[in-house]
Design a protein around this nucleic acid. Structure first.
Length: 196
DNA sequence: GGTAGGATGGGCT
DNA sequence: GCCCATCCTACCC
């Protein structure tokens, strides 16, 4: 995916990244769930507290990796969106494993592939071996890359509030491949909006 | 099927 | 010192 293609508002990029593929070494997974985080008034976004050593990449040019540690144990992988100077990023919450299943299972200490291999933000980073070492790396080329299919798969996108936040808790910024088995948690029926 | 609690460390008040 | 954009295990229906 060319680097300019990332320089769009985070909600648009979040939709665009559904069905795209994260490739890292021998392993790869297809993105099936994302969340957009904005700047300014979006108090759920790390960037809303201002520019710090941790958040600076979110304020920079698009197409870079924002990886942070959560709960002392898990890494979360985000893709920086928008133009430099405008904070915005997309959290990848779930992928369907495509390549390197055996290696992913080793990393997750599982005997057999199963849905729980990559159906959550902390699980997929561990399976794909994405860590804070990747902070700031560009995702259009190199060892950690995001690619689109030549022809995009056909699916429905469901829009819901984001998971696990208290601020801006009802903003419709979570994007889900409707009905995909690797989605981290089934969307509430009440907030299910849908588009293609 | 469900939920309660603990692990664990960095970022920020 | 408190708060997390989480996950797993234990235990209870």
């Amino acid at each position: 995916m060319p680097i300019e293609a990332f320089a769009i508002p985070a909600p648009e990029l979040a939709k665009e990244l559904l069905s795209s593929v994260i490739m890292h070494g021998e392993t790869a997974g297809m993105i099936v769930e994302t969340e957009a985080y904005l700047g300014g008034e979006d108090l759920a976004a790390h960037s809303s507290r201002g520019l710090t050593d941790r958040t600076k990449v979110i304020f920079g040019p698009a197409g870079r990796a924002y990886v942070y540690l959560i709960y002392g144990m898990y890494e979360c992988f985000n893709v920086v969106a928008d133009l430099a100077g405008t904070p915005g990023c997309v959290l990848v919450r779930a992928v369907e494993p495509l390549c390197g299943l055996k290696l992913m299972c080793q990393r997750r200490k599982m005997n057999e592939p199963a849905v729980r291999l990559t159906n959550g933000p902390g699980k997929l980073t561990r399976a794909l071996a994405i860590t804070r070492r990747h902070y700031g790396l560009r995702l259009d080329k190199g060892r950690l890359v995001i690619r689109r299919w030549r022809t995009r798969p056909i699916f429905e996108t469901q829009v819901t509030p984001r998971v696990g936040i208290s601020e801006c808790a009802d903003w419709p910024l979570r994007f889900v491949w409707n009905g995909h088995p690797y989605v981290s948690r089934p969307p509430e029926a009440s907030c299910a909006g849908s588009c293609s």
